[in-house]
Structures are given as structure tokens and as C-alpha cells.
Design a protein around this nucleic acid. Structure first.
Lengths: 140, 140
DNA sequence: ATTCACTTGCAACAATGTTGCAAATATTTT
DNA sequence: AAAATATTTGCAACATTGTTGCAAGTGAAT
């Protein structure tokens, strides 16, 4: 199902289509939330070498297929960018939510990071907003 | 100079005063900005075991002497909390700035993280705001 | 000064991340 | 469709980072 979409995405981003890339991309497409390197290794089973996962994520990042989300536990999460992103310049201005109950990290595509005024002398280039708490699924 | 202040802070937080803790705390007091585990190891010279640094940071975190700042490079930064923090509950609502030029991470104590409204179902417990760009010192 | 609790350093280990290179696979050309 | 070319993969070896148990050392309390 998501196999076709994965191939499309790879093509659109000028990445050759290989088993590993397709599989990892499918994981992102299937999983509704961000994934860490470790998550991917686990979810992919024994199928791919660790190094391949590193390099694939690296490639996806460079092409703008995914973006990285900082964390406080030394395990960066990655999430798919929206279609408009893949082109070239990023439009990655949404808030990220980390659920303290289930541990998932989610892109809140509909919540835009508010503008922020810094003291004189500082230049803003990018803003990242991380909200932690209880997510929709856990909150019932 | 900062030696006395370091001891005071340790006492106030019910931590016994040892060479390592004093030294690491002094580093924070002297350095105006956040430090990673690696920074501390380097700055402290060969003086302390790696494990001691881990455990010291852990202890400082638990006592609320320092807070951690998430990053996108898998190397969490730590910074001193303001005095009011150390008591018990955190009041850690300032923006963090990461300079893309010098690489420093700085607490902008005067810039408060704006409130943010999340979609129905989400509960906010903590908000972290990371701004990257060019800092005051690099911008001249 | 002695006792007791806590902290440190060491050693051993586990996990995570990096690099070079030959084999395998994808893409392009003929 | 097959050959040539470019890219990607897996392996091995290694570097770095983080964790745990335990004996020795140090700080704090009696």
C-alpha cells in the first residue's frame, strides 16, 4: 500500500530506490509519529545493517524528506516533512509534542510556532517548540 | 572567587561538598552559557573520572541545580537554574538560544516562552523553546 | 578522633556512532 | 537486453558515549 507512495517520494527526491530506503520510508508513512534511530532498527527487524539506517536517515535529512526533532534524552527523533517541504527550502514551523505517558513524539502540523522577539543583537534563524504532556490518545 | 558561591549552592541543595562537585559547579558559574557533558570533561582537564561527571550532573539535575536543554546533535546541554529554582519546583520558562556561529547555547532569562494553545485532547505540562541563529557576541 | 554515610575511581561492559572498502544492487548507456 | 557506470549496502574494525558493581577514599556527624 504505502510501498508505492514510498517509491514516489524517493523518486521525487532524487534518491535511488532500494529495499532499505523503501522499507524505512514505509515505516515513517505507516507510523503516525516521529521515530528515533533505535525505533527504526527495532521496527525494521534484523533486515538492515545499523550503518545503513544511519546513512539512510542522513540521506533523507539532506534531501529534506524528514526533519529532526531535538530531545532531552540523547535520541533525536525524525519525522516526515510535509509534501511542500521536499522541494528545497523547508517550511517546518509546527510544534512538536512529546507524550510523557506513551513516549511518542508527534508533529502538530496545525499548531504554528509563535513568533518571538529576542533582545537586541540576536538574529533568529530557526525556532523549535517542544511541548510535553499527555497526548490525545493517552488522555481518555 | 566562585569557589565560595559554589559551596553555598551545594550546601543549599543538600549535596556534600567534594572537589568534583565544586569544580563542575564552578565551571557553570564561570562559563556564561550551557555546557554539554563533553564540554565539562574537556574543561575540567584530566582531573575527574568520566563516571563522576555523569553522576555529578545527574545529582545536580535531581536537586534542580541545573536544567537540561534538548539539542539536535545528541549532546544535551546543561545550564544553571536561577536561584528561585533550587528550592523545589522549577520555574524554568525561558527561551534557549543556540548560536550557529560560535556554537554556544545560552539561556535567555528575560525571554519568556509564550503560551500555546493545543488541539482538543492534549494536555500541556512543559514547554521548551529553542531558537537558533546568531548571538549577540557573534553579531558584530 | 572515630564512626558512618556518601562519593569517587576503576574495571568491565553495553550501546551508539563513524569510516574504509569490497561486494551487491540500481541506474544509465549502448 | 546486456554491458558499463554510479550508487548503495554490509562487514569489519574502531571511536565515542553511557552504565553498573564494587572496593577504596573522602566528607560529615558523633
Amino acid at each position: 500500500m504505502s510501498e508505492k507512495k514510498a517509491e514516489e517520494l524517493l523518486k521525487k527526491n532524487q534518491l535511488s530506490i532500494t529495499g532499505g530506503r523503501r522499507k524505512i520510508l514505509e515505516l515513517f508513512l505507516q507510523h503516525d509519529g516521529a521515530l528515533s534511530h533505535g525505533d527504526i532498527e527495532k521496527k525494521a527487524g534484523e533486515k538492515f545493517d545499523r550503518v545503513t539506517v544511519y546513512r539512510t536517515l542522513q540521506a533523507f535529512l539532506e534531501k529534506g524528506l524528514i526533519h529532526s526533532i531535538p530531545t532531552s534524552d540523547n535520541s533525536i527523533r525524525y519525522a516526515l516533512c510535509k509534501d511542500e517541504c521536499s522541494g528545497g527550502q523547508h517550511r517546518d514551523d509546527h510544534v512538536h509534542f512529546i507524550c510523557n505517558t506513551c513516549g511518542n513524539t508527534i508533529c502538530l502540523e496545525d499548531v504554528t510556532v509563535p513568533a518571538i522577539k529576542l533582545p537586541r543583537g540576536y538574529v533568529t534563524e530557526q525556532v523549535e517548540m517542544l511541548v510535553s504532556g499527555v497526548c490525545k490518545s493517552c488522555n481518555r
